[in-house]
Nucleic acid binder design. Structure first.
Length: 676
DNA sequence: CTACCTCGAGCTCA
DNA sequence: CTCGAGGTAG
């Protein structure tokens, strides 16, 4: 043997393994037999075993998973993870291209588009600092996701160290974690042999694998990572076109999609789409569409964003998958507001990756439009994350005994009168609190997390409580006794005590939560918050006149009317009184009358802000009454410009539009006490 | 809307 | 072991 020190040998083994790994997982081009790879890996394990001090977290041996986590920690994204606009046919894609060219004043000139398949998996963000894999996070709500670092570390196509040089000191890579079909099949085959539960599709298998607290389980799952873009970049430069950014990522050791291509103009996009659509079933992974991005980053910057999506990218989805099945029955569900919704009970059918057995039929108009009868063969569609729908009826297959859908003359739950308001499509039960269905829904809403947050009071329990007649209104849930609870199904002493404790804890709440919990029609979380802020106390709110209500942000005549109806109803007020009587309490809010000093003005925000995102800045300006536009024009009243502002700043200067920096903006917001 | 993971606790049977 | 509740994802 040579005289290499253990450290030297470890180094050389890691280099070799990383290179082979790169060739295998990123380039799809294995250069050595698996046996050779395994031999080196075992040798590395052996030396590391003898010298534990030389083990580093980015060693190729560190992909076997670690001790289970107690929970996933929240991660705030430095730059929000946005979603994509969807196009469902060629014309919507053309409309997108037309908008892009118009905004860029490109005339007849064709735009270069970077195209690639949209993998059906889970979106993630990877953070590399000084070339070392530091953190992986899920998308979550776009702003805050979950830390899944230890799970992602086990995925071979995620490099633990970036290759070469020239990568930025801080590099956030965005991509999709998915399970190739082959891996999915073998995973399920193994599960079937062991008599375990099977995953229904590769996407759910990937999502489920990533949600394991024990990353050793994740390590045993055939997951892959494929990168499609970057997020935060600090101290470093990237090329000026998206496709070149992707090849850079590949050089740094990150896997990118082999089908990525750049095409010219919308015709190029159509051709790419048609080609992929034809080859879709032969791809080694599931895809649900094709993503098109304006290739030049400078153009992307000029296009900017609309609320939650970039204006320079779109996903053209494949046509929704459709299947035939039978309509077994139509049931009528009564919602919290009494709305009676017809729900189709279907012969279960596997469509678009899930088993569909229910679908809403919305209302009488929809039922009439479809002319659907019970017993009919119907076509059911499920497009991606869209709710399943009954598309049409196959009239030729209608059996003679097919029965028409008859809407109830009275509420199917309580027998009260039903009514269809003028100009409305929905049928409503007029029973209100008399109706058990509405009572159940009201209690579920009251107890829900964003309302009174009563832990342990779930659907089944509400069902039992109302059916047993133990509870008729929300206030009565606070008078339940331990004995009453223990008598219920699946309720032991421990569960009963937990629920009683949760009930007690919920009594101390906040005014916005309380208002929201009441379930007044059209009063959601944000309206409840506005009302609480505007009036400060329950007394002030309940005494408010129609015109006072109308002056609250987001409250129009319809909402004001619902509010007045609530406050004019003795039974509603009595319910509030009983809640207060059992001890439900809150602190009054600081009154923040929205003076709307910027009403009628148009503002624009550009560049990078330090202490808040552009979205937040926008929201706060809007709360002062400003309209926040995407581009600067002669009508713009003020431009808020952070560092890196481009053409918008130039244009504002040309047009003599006042310009403000972040400090001045913060000062302005502060003066008007705008916080959320 | 459906599917998945995790947890606590009740149920069941040895 | 099974159920219900609560959370996530697309």
């Amino acid at each position: 043997m040579t005289s290499a020190t253990p450290a030297q040998e470890i180094h050389s083994l890691r280099e070799r393994l990383n290179t082979w790994n790169y060739q295998y997982y990123v380039l799809d081009d294995p250069q050595v037999p698996d046996a050779e790879y395994d031999r080196c890996l075992r040798r590395l394990e052996e030396i590391e075993g003898a010298h534990p001090d030389l083990v580093t977290p980015d060693s190729p041996t560190q992909r076997v998973g670690a001790e289970p986590l107690p929970a996933f920690l929240p991660v705030r994204h430095a730059l929000p993870m946005l979603s994509l606009e969807n196009a469902f046919d060629a014309s919507e894609l053309e409309a997108f291209d037309a908008r892009v060219r118009e905004r860029l004043a490109a005339g007849d000139e064709d735009i270069q588009y970077a195209c690639e398949p949209k993998l059906d998996g889970v979106a993630v963000s990877l953070l590399y600092r000084a070339g070392h894999f530091e953190r992986a996070a899920t998308r979550g709500d776009g702003t805050t996701g979950e830390d899944i670092t230890s799970n992602v570390r086990t995925i071979r196509s995620v490099p633990l160290t970036l290759r070469g040089a020239g990568y930025p000191a801080v590099l956030e890579v965005r991509g999709e974690i998915y399970m190739p079909r082959e891996g999915f099949e073998s995973l399920n085959a193994r599960a079937r042999e062991q008599g375990e539960k099977l995953f229904v599709n590769p996407r759910n298998a990937a999502a489920g694998s990533l949600r394991q607290l024990d990353s050793r389980v994740t390590a045993s799952r055939p997951l892959q990572m494929c990168c499609y873009g970057v997020g935060l970049v600090e101290d470093g430069d990237l090329p000026a076109a998206h496709a070149d950014v992707l090849s850079c990522l590949q050089d740094w050791g990150l896997r990118i999609n082999a089908e990525s291509a750049v095409v010219t103009g919308v015709d190029g996009c159509h051709a790419y789409f048609d080609n992929m659509a034809a080859r879709r079933n032969r791809l080694p992974y599931d895809i649900d569409g094709i993503v098109f991005k304006v290739n030049e980053l400078a153009l992307q910057q000029r296009l900017g964003f609309v609320s939650r999506a970039p204006r320079w990218a779109i996903a053209r989805k494949f046509p929704a998958q459709e299947e035939m099945t039978r309509l077994l029955a139509v049931e009528f569900q009564v919602g919290r507001t009494g709305a009676i919704t017809p729900v189709a009970r279907l012969e279960p059918v596997f469509v678009g990756g899930v088993t569909v057995s229910n679908a809403t039929l919305h209302n009488a108009d929809e039922v009439a439009r479809l002319d659907v009868r019970i017993g009919d063969t119907v076509i059911v569609r499920r497009a991606g994350d869209v709710i399943p729908q009954v598309v049409s009826v196959i009239a030729e297959q209608r059996p003679s005994e097919a029965k028409p859908v008859v809407f109830p003359q009275a509420c199917p739950v309580c027998g009260s009168a039903v009514e269809r308001a003028e100009g409305e499509a929905v049928l409503r039960c007029m029973g209100g609190i008399v109706c058990a269905a509405q009572r159940k829904a009201a209690i579920r809403h009251f107890a829900s997390r964003r309302a009174m947050d009563i832990d342990g009071l779930g659907d089944k329990l509400v069902e039992q409580l109302v059916d047993a007649g133990l509870v008729t209104g929300v206030a009565e849930i606070y008078s339940l006794t331990r004995e009453q609870l223990i008598a219920l199904e699946r309720m032991g002493e421990k569960s009963a005590d937990n629920l009683l404790a949760a009930l007690e804890a919920s009594k101390s709440t906040t005014l916005p939560r309380f208002i929201y919990a009441l379930g007044i029609r059209e009063v959601g979380e944000s309206t409840a918050r506005n009302l609480a802020r505007h009036f400060g106390s329950w007394e002030a709110l309940s005494a408010a006149s129609e015109s006072q209500l109308l002056s609250v942000e987001d409250v129009g005549p319809v909402v004001a009317d619902h509010l007045r109806q609530f406050f004019d109803s003795p039974s509603s007020l009595a319910a509030v009184e009983s809640l207060r009587a059992v001890g439900v309490d809150w602190e009054d809010e600081q009154v923040r009358v929205s003076a709307q000093p910027l009403a009628g003005q148009t503002w624009v925000v550009t560049g990078k802000l330090e202490s808040l995102t552009r979205e937040e800045a926008k929201a706060r300006l809007q709360s002062l009454g400003a309209r926040v536009a995407g581009s600067v024009s002669a009508n713009t009243n003020c431009l808020v410009a952070g560092p890196g502002a481009g053409t918008k700043l130039t244009r504002a200067q040309e047009l003599d539009v006042p310009i403000m920096d972040e400090q001045e903006l913060l000062q302005l917001l502060d003066e008007h006490a705008v916080s959320a």
